[in-house]
């Protein structure tokens, strides 16, 4: 299985350096429509940097990124989000002082018809829109079993719920591509299998593409249709999970060069 012919997201020759360190070097990456692509690699391989490049937090020193046919060069993160790329963060970034409900509600912002003037006048259109947003937020919270926490402050949720809420918030922007940054980190096995179900469900129900950065190989295998392996900012391998995880370079990258064993990395880099 190879890179899609007409991808939704396409990185070409992307490079970024921090001081003397080349974090990502000449990376080509493509995500197809409704594809579930995994981006894996040892710690410090540059996976999160790739996310930051795609979402405009960093600007590539070289190369370009195209999404749905248009270039993302020079766009601000909020503009990129408005084109249909949503993400979660490795170290959860909810809006801690806001309620669970408001965390999701504010993400409807992008598709809002009423602005300041409507909020000030509070006429019928405004109230109708607020009501429809409210019901859509509640619907999403119920689907992801967060409904009963709706009035709680986001920072007071248990860890797993916070991760889930971050995914709901990202989905509320109605993305075409969802970037998940280590969603399984810190989860126990039962939470992990629930997360796998969740990711597959999201991809099917909202008909979106998902780019997943994850260390847990069980989750990666269970979810991803295709894998890209990154090490020291360079792409090592690409293909279906079974092949990629047996690829000698990949095994070497995970377990070290000297004693390359035959077996695939079962669950490397348990951090």
């Amino acid at each position: 299985m190879n890179a899609p012919a007409s991808p939704l997201l396409e990185l070409r020759g992307c490079t970024i350096r921090f001081g003397g360190l080349t974090a990502v070097s000449g990376l080509d990456l493509a995500v197809g429509e409704r594809e579930l692509l995994g981006l894996i690699g040892p710690n410090g391989a540059g996976k999160t940097t790739v996310f930051n490049l795609i979402t405009g937090v960093y600007r590539p020193a070289a190369g370009n990124i195209r999404f749905a046919g248009s270039s993302l060069a020079g766009l601000r993160p909020c503009q990129i989000a408005s084109l249909g790329i949503a993400r979660t963060f490795q170290n959860i970034r909810l809006f801690p002082s806001m309620t669970v409900f408001d965390n999701v509600r504010v993400a409807f912002h992008l598709h809002l018809l009423s602005g300041i003037a409507h909020a000030l006048w509070r006429g019928r259109t405004f109230r109708a829109e607020e009501e429809s947003i409210e019901s859509r937020v509640m619907e999403m919270l119920e689907i992801f079993r967060l409904g009963r926490h709706r009035g709680a402050a986001a920072h007071s949720l248990p860890y797993g719920d916070q991760r889930r809420l971050e995914i709901v918030r990202a989905l509320a922007t109605r993305p075409r591509l969802l970037l998940l940054d280590e969603p399984a980190a810190g989860m126990n096995p039962s939470e992990k299998s629930e997360l796998m179900r969740l990711i597959r469900f999201v991809q099917e129900r909202y008909r979106i593409a998902v780019l997943l950065v994850e260390h847990d190989m069980h989750v990666v295998r269970g979810v991803c249709q295709r894998l890209v392996v990154l090490d020291y900012g360079v792409k090592l391998a690409e293909g279906v999970p079974e092949d990629v995880l047996r690829h000698p370079k990949v095994v070497a990258a995970y377990l070290g060069e000297q004693n390359t064993p035959r077996r695939a990395p079962a669950a490397p880099a348990e951090s």
Binding site: P77, C78, A81, F95, V106, A107, A170, A172, T173
Partner: peptide
């Protein structure tokens, strides 16, 4: 106020 980076990521200018 809560998190500028997260706010940008959901499309808030």
């Amino acid at each position: 106020q809560d998190d500028e980076i997260a706010a940008e990521a959901i499309g808030i200018n």
